[in-house]
Amino acid sequence: MERTSEFKNIPEQRLYANILFYLNLIGLFILLTGFTLYLTGVITPLVPLEDLPRFWSLSLDEYIEKSNMPTGWQWISKIGYGDIAPMLGIAVLASVTFVCYFVLLFQFLKRGVKTLALIVSIELLLILLSASNLIQVTH
């Protein structure tokens, strides 16, 4: 098979892999630290551990209403509560792709790879839109 640019791996593969690897480790570390603090009772939770079985079978709307759990980005203001602390690690894990794509965008722009830069930009906007909590569906 003739080797054209089509058959070459992009040079950013290694960089993407490294960022992914370290951010994932950091995310897991933060997640497990937060969860350990929650589980051991070092930080008081909003919903006491022994009351959890009364909440986890509720529908989402009922759960939010009865537990006073924050939605959207409000969890940041309640990060001191045990059941909110692990959210930081969860948010880091959910952000790993965003950071990787952000780096990719700069690399593609630097190399002048416009098509791939456009795809990455749209994906970044999509992740931002999802994370922003700006889209609301009412029922």
């Binding site: 551990l49 986890w56 939605t71 980005w73 959210m87 999802s130 994370a131």
Partner: peptide, 20 residues
Amino acid sequence: DSTAAWIYLNKGAVLPMITV
């Protein structure tokens, strides 16, 4: 899954006691 996960996270559908 990153994009969909953010929607669930923002809506409060991620319970650490189940997820972790």
